[in-house]
Design a binder for these strands. Sequence first.
DNA 1: TGTCCAGATTGGCCTGACCAGCTAAGGGGT
DNA 2: ACCCCTTAGCTGGTCAGGCCAATCTGGACA
Lengths: 252, 252
Amino acid sequence: MIAKTEAGRLYEKVAQDLSQKIAAGQYVIGQRLPSERDLAQAYEVSRPTIREAIIALELDGLVEVRLGSGVYVTARLPRGGQAGEMDIGPFELLEARRAIEGESAALAAALISDEELEELRQLVAEMQAENARNVVMSEDADRRFHMLIATATQNSAMVAAVQMLWDARARSPQTQSLSAKAHAAGVTPRIDEHAEILKALRERSPEAARRAMRDHLTRVLESLLAATEVQELEQARARIAAERKRYTTTSG
Amino acid sequence: MIAKTEAGRLYEKVAQDLSQKIAAGQYVIGQRLPSERDLAQAYEVSRPTIREAIIALELDGLVEVRLGSGVYVTARLPRGGQAGEMDIGPFELLEARRAIEGESAALAAALISDEELEELRQLVAEMQAENARNVVMSEDADRRFHMLIATATQNSAMVAAVQMLWDARARSPQTQSLSAKAHAAGVTPRIDEHAEILKALRERSPEAARRAMRDHLTRVLESLLAATEVQELEQARARIAAERKRYTTTSG
DNA sequence: TGTCCAGATTGGCCTGACCAGCTAAGGGGT
DNA sequence: ACCCCTTAGCTGGTCAGGCCAATCTGGACA
């Protein structure tokens, strides 16, 4: 699906975020979502915007609205249809992103325009602001940041690849719950790392951009591993150690 | 006020009515609908209700809203075949493959099993045999070679990414015709380059594998560029011939 | 004649409010 | 002690009015 959702209307962002949370199982099927008023407060938008988002979800068949009662999750089907919907693990996903988005950044460094650099700067600022306010929607700016870099490569195949990875991420219950846990554990959105990537792109240095992107995703991977360690029991330690060894030794 | 009688939200009625008028041709494709304020007045509803109706139409692909300009009727797309896969150009595809499959090879080098190495060896042999018999090089062996390497990464996200690229390649008319031309022009199946990749994988060297893969795809890219030039020359020649014919037959 | 800028128009979003269903808690009757 | 029924509080549905930014348009100016 062609991503027209970039920098779009507010309700689209909210709808996408809610859709992800439903897909991730954060709202069980049959469960009632928070009230429109609560959602408006949580997303820091007005109630009409929340209503529009809910209408979008309803038209997608994800949700059912019952007057006077609330809005209920009806299904858990992802937004774009049924193309390839296996659940890719969080660590696999990040490993692939490190490899692919690293190259995306390297390609973009040579081709990125001043306008796109400015957009990236704004997105970093946005993440910073949202982080300061501890707002729910912080993932959206992150996603747009990475997608914009892919777009800057002027290579639609690369855009499609990166898009696929983020779609898979949104569709993966494992990844969603894990990243939610990491968020709750106080993992910051890594403003400085994004700034480092931006800096490398500004310098038009493919090598520096690749390295900054890979470093960033390596750290995300590590913090996710740490979050996993904190939450899981001793029984899992051996397996985690094995994973860590594997995912940290193959960096190229 | 519109008949509030039956159940159903107001915006649904408005959306349905507008949808009918569009289908009936009352609003020609490309034409601008009345402004939200005017529609609100016409339907005797509030502007938020009109907005919700327009959002519904937009999600149905009937309409496109342009900020500051208005909402415009768009062409009705055939429902269902959403695959939305545009035709990705051959060169974009190869550039993306060089970046992504290069990393795929690097990852695989550290993890590939002896069984997979043996399979790769057989695939190279298969390509060689087909090439020796001057058979129409079925791309199948080539594809299986590259997919097997992706599989060897033991990373399903990477597999999905590489798979997507090959799917796009299979779907792309441009790429297909171009690669057919390249074959016709006597481009060899590059057995040696595949062997080089295999050799690097055998040595379990990520760097060598990445380099071999990138070199391979770079050369494919170059030969495709050459084929394009040939094709353009042929087209130019044909065009000239056609013109000559035209001017010699109609001038009399 | 061509260019440029200010006002009008449009969608994007917000605040605040009222109404009508629904739900569950609490009171009265048995 | 149990059950039914009222009722207060939620929830979504809708409205009204307003501000902002993007866009368009026409007239003034060079």
